[in-house]
Nucleic acid binder design. Structure first.
Lengths: 342, 342
DNA sequence: TATTTTTGCTAAATCGATTTAGTAAAAAAT
DNA sequence: ATTTTTTACTAAATCGATTTAGCAAAAATA
């Protein structure tokens, strides 16, 4: 059962492939094809169950209607949800998404970018791993549109969509202060990334504004490729001695850290929020059924996904046109649950 | 900066495109290209930073090195992890994955299948929504390899990879019985799907083998498109009256149900496992930091991902050859945590 | 020396679709 | 009656790569 091609329709009707193409692509009026022929083309196309070959279309037109999405790990619920929003928005416009998980590894993301370029993707949506400046800079010099999400690279002028991390962390920390917490810790990732730095800066500024001196020993910086043991180490440094808890609250800079940390806190026999209050960036189902439902800073994932697609589509539809880069900063949502001791 | 094509290399060296293609595709020996020319081709290719256009390759060869993956929802951690394993295994073989979330909607999955066929995917990996028999049957008649995962359709002879759901549910229920639980409920999805039916059958058989009569009122069947309110209704029917709890344990047939149910149980002020023990299909990070870490039936996601790709690659490498369909049933892992009252 | 085989390449076709460049015939304008 | 414009299509080129079909010249064999 060979799949019907456009040529089969033309042969069947004794007309040119050109004519069939014009009809099927809504150009009949423009090229003055008669109504009669149009109808016969549509009929035969339907009879043969014709559907276009997007690979052939892509080769000829230079548009594959495919976007490459590079995120840290699709299995991470934060990125899973983000990916879902992007997938949905893309589908609304007839675009496919190829998902690549970089594991926060720049070598891996560079390979993925190369592979996606070979696949002639129309654009990229990238959550850049640390130390990926060079490959993003190269991308920015090329013709393919792209937009950074979740984090950006200050020294590169390109599209990005981020949230106001400073303000979010400031708000969260101030909230903990308002609940009487004074020894507030922050567990975060390598501060070379702007979004992580902003989160920690906001936390510190809230402490300073409350005339509390920032204790650098309460700021635990994990390597980017952090695992359970890294988080456990940080928690043990803060809370290992239950007669001398170093902190009475913790702000987690990511939900991945938060989940691992809470598991660790529970196994230490500590109670949330009685012994230690917690607040975390990014909402996730896990936080709702937690030992103590977690107070979170939620990101507008739907808006991020929609905005990313809008930016790309706008550039894709005007190839070669130099468009002003869009830098979008969105608001977070502070959701108070039990874990902060409210 | 126009991207270098294979023709550019040929022009630069004054040789044919054919020769360049042979060299770059490892066919130099076969077509007796001299060592000297080979080296010069490789040098120029490197100098021009040539990389192949996979769209052109796909059009000519009929292989796009792309697999279409259709699952319920990439934002669901179970499917997120499964997708991750598949993505990883595919990348190992140089394949891209296009992810589509069907939302358990057969109309949507039919559209996704059509779109992916237009994109000339080399194969499909599909977690079929309910009522998608017709589209799977049509796929089975076509030339493109595919494999069903997570659930299968008994009346269609095609590749599938599933776990032994009957045995898993039987074991879990027996475990609860061994802990003294007698009024064991099961919250599941529409039983028209074989995997859901097997889970409930295993649960029932364990009760019968313990000489406990199956109480159909303890089996709550949710619609496929279940939401929080559906789960809340079921939980309220079972546990709404805390002086007359209808169940002392619940087996959740999916983690999605489990998470929503636990949230509901907590808001009723009930304690897990003191008031109500719980066991759930499918491990997820959320269950580790739960009010009471959840006892789970874990699926071998890595093995599923690898097996799915193996099955597809085996068929892809011998097009047109009628291969015996592979029906794989894998073992689950029972992980005991606190929620069952152990 | 004549014939056959091997060597080391080449041009052209192919994939399926879209775009470009064109034109015979009919209709309208002069 | 002649010239110009419009109509309703067409053939061929194009996209970038791979495959198919082929062949002149050199080397080997008879």
């Amino acid at each position: 059962m060979k799949k019907a091609s456009l040529s089969d329709i033309a042969l069947r009707l004794g007309v040119s492939k050109t004519l069939v193409s014009f009809v099927l692509n809504g150009k009949a009026k423009e090229y003055r094809i008669s109504e009669d022929i149009c109808q016969r083309v549509m009929d035969v196309a339907k009879e043969l169950n014709y559907s276009p070959n997007r690979i052939a279309q892509g080769l000829r037109t230079g548009n594959t209607k495919t976007i490459g999405l590079i995120i840290a790990d699709i299995a991470n619920p934060f990125f899973g949800k983000l990916g879902r929003e992007i997938e949905q928005e893309a589908a609304r416009h007839g675009y496919n998404i190829i998902f690549c998980s970089s594991d926060e590894n720049p070598e891996k993301s560079a390979q993925q970018i190369a592979m996606l370029q070979q696949s002639q993707v129309d654009g990229f949506i990238i959550s850049p791993p640390i130390n990926s400046e060079e490959q993003i800079r190269t991308l920015a010099k090329g013709p393919i549109p792209f937009v950074l999400i979740d984090r950006f690279i200050p020294e590169i002028d390109c599209n990005h969509i981020v949230v106001d991390n400073f303000d979010a962390a400031y708000t969260a920390t101030k909230h903990l202060l308002s609940l009487g917490r004074r020894q507030i810790a922050n567990i975060t990732l390598n501060l070379d990334l702007a979004n992580m730095k902003d989160r920690t800066d906001g936390y510190k500024q809230a402490l300073r504004d409350a005339s509390i001196e920032v204790d650098e020993n309460l700021v635990k910086v994990l390597p980017f490729s952090h695992e359970n043991k890294d988080v456990a180490l940080a928690i043990n440094e803060l809370l290992g001695n239950r007669d001398d808890l170093k902190a009475d609250a913790i702000l987690f800079s990511t939900s991945k850290i938060g989940i691992m940390a809470i598991e660790c806190i529970s196994s230490l026999g500590l109670k949330i929020p009685d012994d230690i209050a917690v607040v975390s960036f990014d909402n996730t189902d896990a936080y709702k059924i937690c030992v103590s439902p977690v107070t979170v800073i939620g990101q507008p994932l739907k808006e991020i996904g929609k905005t990313a697609m809008d930016i790309l589509l706008n550039e894709i539809k005007q190839p070669g046109v130099k468009v002003k880069t869009q830098k979008v900063t969105l608001k977070t949502e502070f959701i108070v649950r039990k874990s902060c001791g409210a």
